[in-house]
C-alpha cells in the first residue's frame, strides 16, 4: 500500500475554480435525479408537444397571427426556467440542509457567496440544456424564432433571479418535506394559471392580474424576446421587483443549517 504523506499543506483553490466545481457538481446531480429531470425536461416537452398538437386540433385562438408553436415554445422555455430556478432549487436546497451538506460545505474553503454563485451557475447550466432540448423539439414542430439576445438574455437572468430567490425563501422557512410539497404545488398552480405557457391575451381580463405574477412576467418577457426579438421592459421590471422582494425575504429568514 502506498504510504500517504499527510504533512500539512493547506490552501483554498482559487475561488473561480471552487465555484465552477460546485456548479458542475450541482448541475450533474440535478440532471441525474429522476424526479428533477422529469420536472426539468420531460414535463416541458410534453406540454409543448401536447399544447401544439391539441391547439391545432381545437383551433385554439391565442389572438395572434402567428403559428401556435411560435407562441408556445417561448412559453415552455419560460416554464422550464421557472421549474429549475424555483422548484428544483427549493427542493434540492431543502434536502441539502436536511442532510448536512450545507453544514459540511460550511467548513470547507468554499464561502457562502461562492456556494450561492455555484448554485446560480448550476441553474444556468441546466437551463441551457433545457433550452437546447425544448428549442430542438420546437423546431421539429415548425418553430421559427426571431430571438433578440438582449430580450431573451434578460428574461432568463431576471427570471432566474426572481424564482431562485423565492425558491431559497421557501427552502429556508419550511422543512424539507414541506418544501417539496409547496414547491411542487406552487409550480403546478403557476403552470396552469400563471401566464407562463399561454400568453396573457388568453386570460381575458384576468390577464391584467397575471402579468404582475413572476410567472406571467417571465412568460411575456420570453415571448417578446423570441417572437419579435424585442425587450419587454415592463415585464422585466416586474421580475426585478420580485427578485428584490425574494432576495430581501431570503436574506431575512434563510438559515444555511
Amino acid at each position: 500500500m502506498a504510504d500517504l504523506d499527510f504533512t500539512p499543506r493547506p490552501g483554498a483553490a482559487p475561488l473561480r475554480s471552487q465555484v465552477l466545481a460546485q456548479a458542475r457538481m450541482e448541475a450533474r446531480l440535478m440532471l441525474r435525479n429522476g424526479e428533477q429531470l422529469l420536472l426539468a425536461v420531460v414535463i416541458p416537452v410534453l406540454v409543448l408537444v401536447g399544447g401544439v398538437t391539441a391547439g391545432e386540433h381545437l383551433t385554439l385562438d391565442l389572438h395572434t397571427s402567428r403559428p401556435l408553436v411560435d407562441t408556445f415554445t417561448p412559453g415552455v422555455i419560460a416554464l422550464a426556467v421557472m421549474s429549475t430556478s424555483f422548484t428544483s432549487l427549493a427542493i434540492a436546497t431543502g434536502f441539502e440542509r436536511r442532510y448536512g451538506v450545507i453544514k459540511r460545505l460550511g467548513s470547507s474553503p468554499l464561502p457562502r457567496s461562492g456556494l450561492l454563485a455555484g448554485k446560480v451557475l448550476a441553474l444556468l447550466m441546466v437551463q441551457l440544456v433545457q433550452i437546447i432540448v425544448i428549442g430542438g423539439v420546437g423546431q421539429l414542430l415548425g418553430w421559427t424564432p426571431e430571438p433578440g439576445v438582449l430580450g431573451v438574455g434578460l428574461a432568463v437572468l431576471l427570471g432566474t433571479a426572481a424564482f431562485a430567490s423565492l425558491g431559497l425563501f421557501v427552502a429556508g422557512v419550511l422543512r424539507a418535506e414541506a418544501t417539496l410539497a409547496a414547491a411542487n404545488l406552487i409550480y403546478l398552480l403557476l403552470m396552469a394559471g400563471g401566464g407562463v405557457v399561454l400568453p396573457l391575451a388568453a386570460y381575458g381580463a384576468f390577464g391584467d392580474v397575471v402579468r404582475w405574477l413572476p410567472s406571467g412576467a417571465l412568460g411575456e418577457a420570453m415571448r417578446t424576446g423570441f417572437i419579435d426579438g424585442g425587450v419587454a421592459w415592463r415585464d422585466l421590471g416586474v421580475l426585478l421587483i420580485w427578485a428584490v422582494l425574494g432576495t430581501t425575504l431570503t436574506a431575512r429568514t434563510f438559515k444555511w443549517e
Binding site: P10, A12, Y99, V101, R104
Partner: peptide, 14 residues
Amino acid sequence: LPRIGVMLQGGGAW
C-alpha cells in the same frame, strides 16, 4: 477554514 479539516458526526453529503 482552508487550514482545518472537519469530520462531522454524520451526514454531510448529497
